[in-house]
Computed example of a mutant assay.
Amino acid sequence: MNFVTLYYDITKEIEIYELRLLDLEIELKAAVKLMHKGKLPSATHPVFVSLDKAAAQYDIVVEKIQEVSKRLDEKKQIRDRIEENIKDFKGVEHQVAYMRDILLMPLGAIADELGYSYSFISKISSRLKKMMRVPSDIVEQL
């Protein structure tokens, strides 16, 4: 069930890119403010910055935003493709893993949706969790 780990990894990457975009938006506001006021606050006296240097800083931040936005879009497309492929998996194990780990459905709802008993779905879920654990000797080799 490596697809679940892959899905979680790509989801975390998306979250990180979204946080980076928020950070860059703050930087962009600061760059705009610098262009308008022409000075940076400092401990003793304000530092004056020429318009061309302030504009250059603005351009750098805009370029970073474009790069991160592009990368974020790519990651979202990959996540969507992973979801589409996971939905096509056959077998109750894959369906349980998809519904439990991707859709975040409770086991009772999965049992109802798939037409199995809660006990059966619970056993499958438990077996899947055991399969996903990496043995400690493998982790030490990494």
Rank of each mutant, 00 (worst) to 15 (best):
S126L: 13
T11K: 10
Q95Y: 02
E83N: 13
P41M: 00
R133V: 12
E13N: 10
V61S: 05
R100V: 07
L19Q: 14
F120R: 15
I65K: 09
A54F: 00
K37I: 13
K75Q: 13
K33C: 06
S50A: 05
K90F: 00
K64F: 05
D88G: 06
P106D: 13
F48P: 04
K75V: 09
D9K: 12
M99C: 12
L34P: 02
V4Y: 02
K75Y: 13
K53C: 04
L22M: 15
H94P: 04
A55Q: 10
G115K: 06
L24V: 02
E15V: 10
S117K: 05
L142H: 11
P41I: 01
L104H: 11
R133T: 13
I78H: 01
Y98V: 07
D23L: 12
D73I: 05
S119F: 08
I16A: 15
F48C: 06
S117Y: 03
S125A: 15
K29F: 05
E25G: 12
S42P: 05
N85F: 12
I121S: 04
E84S: 14
I124H: 00
E63N: 09
P135Q: 05
Y116V: 08
Q57K: 15
I102L: 07
Q95H: 11
M1F: 02
K70M: 09
L51S: 10
I124Q: 00
L40K: 11
K130Y: 04
E18W: 00
K130D: 11
Y7M: 00
Y118E: 08
Y98T: 05
E84V: 06
D112C: 03
R127F: 02
K29H: 08
E18V: 07
I138M: 07
R133E: 14
P41W: 00
E83L: 11
D73N: 08
L21Y: 04
E84W: 01
A97M: 10
D112Y: 02
H45M: 11
E27D: 14
D137V: 13
H36A: 11
T5Q: 09
M35V: 15
A111F: 03
L22H: 14
Y98I: 05
V49K: 00
D112E: 12
G91L: 06
T5E: 12
E83G: 08
K12L: 14
D80W: 00
Y118S: 07
V139Y: 06
S69L: 07
E74H: 06
K76E: 11
D101L: 06
V61R: 03
E113C: 07
L107N: 15
G91F: 05
L128A: 09
Y7S: 01
L104W: 02
I16P: 03
K87N: 01
K76Q: 13
N2T: 09
K37Y: 13
A56D: 09
